[in-house]
């Protein structure tokens, strides 16, 4: 690059580098801390950044294994963390798959087919995705309370109800996928149509294989959103074994029962896989966030 370089470049680079390191130190402090806390002995011990006598007790308890203390007494795991994690994953996978199916077909219609009120529907979706489910919690609660009278596995305190409630996050994804579909030239589909393919066949065998990247992005985005969702799940779920991770984790930091060390281990254990998934897919997620989502 033939850029004109200022004379004091070296000095500037070092200033920037030191600023960046200081900033990173502050930003990453909570992560160092939580790992250190998870290795401490006991829930109340305050100590230095590096634990003096590290113990794996919180990790045993997070994994659901009872821990034998030094004095011979046994500590039982306080909460079923792995059950919560599994609940979260079940709900996230099923709801993301449903969102993907529904929003892909919807986006296809918006991008390729002609029908009445198309523009109005699109505008409505744009506005609706700004209303979070949080605002209609009373309605959602009451709705599932009544559904539960007819279909128990979709009633209150069931994972089915949470899965279904998360489908409301669909509107945004329709926009994302539609934006991507529009970047694909439809001459291929037209060629297929001339060869006698039905619109369904053109969609299934021509457009879908070309759109795998955006479908993956939408699935991951929906998956992460569902794992991290707190308000709806906290209202719909009640019994200890039915909680999702987001609702359950809160139990650790009750003022009456403050389990800081146990929480730290559970947080690292459950946060790690999700973080890895995000980082592994960040290239595509970032692309999706900046392109499809903002197109008007």
């Amino acid at each position: 690059m033939a850029m004109v370089q200022p004379r004091n470049l070296k000095y500037r680079v070092w200033t920037a580098r030191i600023l960046m390191w200081l900033f990173l130190l502050v930003i990453l402090f909570p992560f160092f801390m939580i790992i250190s806390v998870s290795l401490r002995t006991g829930n109340f011990a305050t100590g230095s950044l590096i634990p003096e006598n590290p113990s794996l007790e919180h990790w045993y308890l997070a994994l659901g294994i009872p821990w034998e203390n030094a004095d011979g007494s046994i500590t039982q795991p306080p909460f079923p963390v792995l059950t919560w994690l599994w609940n979260s994953i079940k709900v996230a996978i099923i709801s993301s798959a449903l969102i993907l199916i529904l929003s892909t077909t919807g986006a296809y219609a918006f991008a390729r087919l002609r029908f009445r009120f198309k523009q109005q529907m699109l505008t409505a979706m744009m506005i609706l995705q700004m209303f979070p489910a949080v605002l209609a919690l009373v309605a959602i609660y009451s709705l599932f309370d009544q559904i539960g009278d007819f279909i128990p596995w979709l009633g209150l305190d069931s994972l089915g109800s949470v899965t279904l409630a998360y489908l409301g996050g669909m509107a945004l994804h329709i926009w994302l996928i539609k934006g991507y579909f529009e970047t694909i030239d439809n001459s291929l589909e037209e060629a297929a149509a001339i060869d006698g393919a039905t619109p369904w066949q053109a969609f299934r065998f021509v457009l879908l294989p070309l759109s795998v990247p955006i479908l993956a992005v939408v699935f991951i985005l929906a998956f992460i959103a569902s794992i991290a969702e707190y308000p709806v799940a906290s209202v719909l779920l009640q019994s200890m074994d039915n909680l999702t991770l987001a609702v359950g984790s809160r139990q650790y930091l009750n003022p009456q029962n403050y389990l800081w060390g146990d929480f730290a281990a559970a947080a690292v254990l459950s946060g790690f896989p999700i973080t890895i998934i995000f980082l592994a897919c960040q290239r595509w997620i970032v692309g999706g966030l900046t392109s499809g989502g903002v197109k008007g």
């Binding site: 209303f131 489910a133 309605a139 959602i140 709705l143 489908l167 409301g168 669909m170």
Partner: peptide
């Protein structure tokens, strides 16, 4: 999941 809950609320 979006419109009906809003109206219901």
């Amino acid at each position: 999941f979006i419109v009906f809950p809003l109206i219901y609320t």
